[in-house]
């Protein structure tokens, strides 16, 4: 299957420092609109750090400094005029552990839409909630108990609720940081299926420790090692015939 390579995010020469420690070294990588990009690599390789630069989550860490250029549809996201709250609405994030607010299922999804002014009336807000929960594949399971607490759901449902919450603010990009690592295989499969359904509507980048998962859900894979981007390209190619020795050693279990 050939898809056009429309870049949604373009990162050029990105380096990240935590104090004196350089976590990312001169990484240039694009996130496509239509192809899911997976970041793989051993613990501490910088894959999550790089993901977090894409919606400026590193801003919240004291001493963190980002060099280089990251553009979202051509706009420099580190430019002084960039509204970070708006950026994070455009570039949503789903974390490793599902982290619903201790509020109702409805409120979890409605909250962001309300504060971003995406719904003017109760009916409009209901519609946003229903659409987000439907796209996250959760609507049929929760439509009769929207007032129940989000934290009462199962782990897999909580993670889909968090995806619904990200979707509700109408983002352009969804970043996922090991979204399945706390889930059982069935819940994992549902998230993977969901990623497949969301592809194209949102640009998606996912960090995962599970290489089979990267191979299953992504069309582009980027391998990070010691803060460097060692190799990136077509997922099928990378997992069957990697170009770099370091990539091969890692994906075949010869690392370290």
């Amino acid at each position: 299957m050939t898809l056009p390579n429309r870049s949604k995010i373009e990162a050029k020469g990105v380096s990240v420092f935590y104090g004196d420690n350089q976590a990312i070294r001169d990484v240039s990588l694009n996130i496509d609109q239509d192809r899911v990009t997976a970041f793989i690599g051993p613990s501490g390789c910088g894959k999550s750090t790089f993901l977090r630069t894409l919606n400026r989550m590193n801003d919240t860490i004291a001493g963190a400094r980002v060099e280089g250029e990251i553009r979202l549809d051509g706009d420099d996201i580190y430019a002084s005029g960039m509204d970070v709250v708006e950026l994070r609405a455009r570039v949503g994030m789903v974390f490793q552990k599902p982290n619903p607010f201790p509020k109702s299922i409805y409120e979890n999804v409605a909250y962001g839409a309300r504060i971003h002014g995406l719904a003017r009336s109760r009916e409009a807000l209901d519609a946003v909630v229903e659409q987000a929960l439907t796209r996250a594949g959760l609507w049929n399971e929760v439509k009769d108990r929207l007032k129940d607490s989000g934290t009462a759901l199962s782990g897999g449902q909580q993670q889909r609720l968090c995806i619904a919450r990200a979707i509700a603010v109408d983002p352009e990009v969804i970043l996922m940081d090991e979204p399945c690592s706390a889930l059982d295989p069935i819940a994992t499969a549902r998230i993977e299926e969901l990623i497949h359904e969301l592809r194209g509507r949102y640009a998606i980048a996912i960090v995962t420790h599970n290489m089979q998962q990267a191979a299953r859900v992504s069309q582009v894979t980027a391998f990070f090692h010691m803060g460097q981007l060692v190799e990136h390209g077509d997922t099928a190619q990378l997992f069957t015939s990697p170009r770099e020795e370091r990539t091969k050693d890692y994906i075949t279990g010869r690392y370290g």
């Binding site: 290489m211 089979q212 191979a215 069957t240 015939s241 091969k248 994906i251 075949t252």
Partner: peptide
């Protein structure tokens, strides 16, 4: 059991 990759898989 091993889910081989790259040259192992080939």
């Amino acid at each position: 059991l091993r889910a081989p990759m790259a040259d192992d898989l080939r």
